[in-house]
Amino acid sequence: MSTDAIIVTGLFNTQEDTLAAVEKIQKQGFEVTEVHSPIPSNALARALGRKKSKIGWFTLCGGITGFVSGFSLAVFTATRWSLIVGGKPILSWIPFFVIAFEFTILFAVLGNVLGIVTQVGLPDPDYEINYDPECSGSLYGIEVASAPENLDSLKDLLHHTGSLKELREDK
């Protein structure tokens, strides 16, 4: 997308209309930069060529860190005084596994949250750019980039694909 490109957002009623419009717009050589939708859609993600989420890696790293931390904490605390309590050995692996398990879940979830922050891009203070509030309710918004000289043909195209209204934002 060139720096002097103009972004036009077309609003659509249904996911099916939106998918059909995205395909037509892309065929006409315009770049669909983003789609805002009220519900998740794998079909839209595929149409926009979005890559698979990497959040699972954050969760996995969190889980591994948690397991090691939980086990280490239990071993560390047990070996500070090395007192035999209740006839159990100082290093009681089975009880320690419970602590390691809880830490695994806790840190995996914290890793998941870190994944949301970094991958989903939240918090996003600039969310209002090219965004129509109707897109959180019931409509789908397709953001299309266009060179200034192609603006009219893009608006016509959006209109013909069933767009309810078009919003223009200068970059």
Partner: peptide, 30 residues
């Protein structure tokens, strides 16, 4: 948090939500 329902946001969010559910399940039993 400035949620705007972008396709990329939904893609990652749905994944994260499923992982949350997957982690909460053994947790609740434990």
């Amino acid at each position: 948090l400035g949620w705007s329902g972008k396709t990329g946001q939904w893609l990652n969010y749905s994944r994260a939500y499923m992982l949350f559910a997957g982690l909460a399940t053994p947790l609740v039993i434990s």
